[in-house]
Simulated assay, not measured.
Amino acid sequence: MGWLALLLAGLAIWLIWTGRLQRMTAKDGMILGAALVGAVLAAKGKPAVGAPLLIGAALFFARQGNARSRPRKRAATPPTSPNAAEVSKARALLGVAPDSDAKAIRAAHRRLIASVHPDKGGTEALAAEINAARDLLLADQKQKQQ
């Protein structure tokens, strides 16, 4: 029954190696916990109870891997051109001049977001607004260059 524990250890190593533990959902965590319980039960001499848990976890993760490997179809969003009022509001928020380049926009964004980031005591709404302003200005500048 030690081979079942090795199989579980291999599964855990595979999950870490592929980076799936970083984006694990609650369901993935519950299945991994069930696999751990199954491995412990199988190692303690109760393979009739532990083996189904291990096999079920292996099948779940195998099916998850197949579902994630399929390419997803995404609807193409048509590019929208920002209007002048939105651009001027974004420039005022970031404090950049109308002739500023992408490097200046990114520098202003970094400077401003450092002071209002949620980790520094700011709000998520303000940080999202600042990020949106940066994205809008960069998209506007890219559109002007084309």
Rank of each mutant, 00 (worst) to 15 (best):
A108W: 06
G56Q: 02
G19T: 05
K142H: 14
A75N: 07
L126Y: 07
G45W: 13
F61R: 01
G29C: 09
A43E: 11
A128N: 13
L53Y: 05
N131P: 07
H117I: 10
F60V: 10
L21D: 08
A35H: 01
D135T: 02
F60N: 09
T80E: 11
A35R: 10
A62Q: 04
Q64L: 06
L36A: 14
K144A: 12
P79R: 07
G95P: 03
Q141K: 10
V96I: 12
A97Y: 11
S100V: 01
K144T: 11
A132S: 15
L112V: 03
N66M: 15
N131T: 10
P52G: 05
K44G: 15
A43S: 09
A107N: 06
A97T: 11
A92D: 07
K144G: 07
L93K: 03
G65Y: 13
A43D: 10
R72Y: 02
R111M: 04
H117K: 04
A43K: 01
G29H: 00
K144D: 09
P82D: 07
L112G: 13
V49K: 12
G121N: 12
L53Q: 07
G121K: 04
L32S: 07
G29V: 08
A114D: 13
R74F: 14
A125H: 06
G95K: 01
K46R: 12
A43F: 12
T123W: 00
A107F: 03
G121V: 08
A92E: 12
D28G: 00
A92G: 11
M24C: 04
A67Q: 09
A104G: 08
S88P: 02
S115E: 04
P52N: 01
A43Q: 06
R20E: 12
D119M: 10
I105L: 06
K142G: 15
G50H: 00
K89Q: 15
A26R: 15
E129Q: 12
A128I: 07
V49Y: 08
L94I: 04
V116W: 03
A75R: 05
Q22H: 14
